[in-house]
């Protein structure tokens, strides 16, 4: 954001206070976690690290993360009553303090569980202003800012997968702004994260899902 500042980065954003990092950024982390999970979770176990743990309550970080997991945006007045809204939506949210190691002071680790028992663990930090960065999905290192739409492709680590995916995106006119691949070990489960300038259309997502060695595809919109 710093290198392409608009008038509305200074006069804005419109947000629920009090803190762009501890409140607005926390909503965006929740929004991103929800998009990565891909469905409404039944349970969210949230670990708060550093400043999120020590001053989170006074800044409404707990409400903000919960609001994001319910699909609210940083300017939604419903953030104030997000815990009640979560109860009404049968989303069970718990908070604990945790030492997550050498990470940014404003970091949360969110473990999401569906009614069917599917689990995804997402970790991210609120790094200043309302800017955020998601740093981990399960055991994979990532760097997702939420500024651009993202395509997350889980696949088996084998030659040709990256080329196949990028060819599909090229055919559908989606320009790749950044790309990251990480894997558990050679030949094992791998994760490809592609930031694109344009949202990837459903047809392209369908083709990627059909590509050889691809096990799942998830679209995460800009938040």
């Amino acid at each position: 954001m710093a290198n392409q500042r608009s008038l509305f980065d200074i006069i804005g954003p419109v947000m629920i206070g009090p803190s762009s990092s501890h409140t607005a950024g926390a909503v965006r982390l929740g929004e991103l976690a929800l998009a990565i999970f891909g469905e409404r979770p039944a349970e969210a176990a949230i670990e708060l690290h550093g400043s999120f743990a020590s001053t989170g309550r006074g800044h409404g970080t707990d409400l903000a993360l919960t609001a994001g997991l319910l699909g609210m945006t940083p300017d939604d007045p419903g953030i104030r009553t997000a815990l009640e809204a979560a109860r009404a939506a049968d989303l069970r949210v718990t908070f604990t303090d945790a030492d997550l190691g050498e990470v940014h002071p404003n970091t949360a680790r969110i473990t999401l569980r569906s009614g069917g028992g599917r689990v995804v663990v997402v970790q991210g930090s609120s790094v200043g202003g309302a800017d955020v960065i998601l740093t981990r999905i399960d055991d994979f290192d990532v760097a997702i800012s939420g500024e651009l739409p993202v395509l997350i492709v889980e696949h088996h680590d084998q030659p040709g997968v990256i080329a196949a995916v990028s060819q599909i995106l090229a055919r559908h006119d989606a320009n790749v702004a950044s790309m990251e691949v990480s894997r558990e070990m050679r030949g094992a489960r791998a994760l490809m994260v592609l930031e694109t300038d344009q949202p990837v259309d459903d047809a392209a997502v369908g083709e990627v899902a059909q590509a050889s060695a691809v096990t799942s595809v998830r679209v995460v919109p800009a938040v």
Partner: peptide
């Protein structure tokens, strides 16, 4: 008080 403001 967690009201709506413009961060400006």
């Amino acid at each position: 008080a967690m009201g709506r403001i413009v961060a400006a």
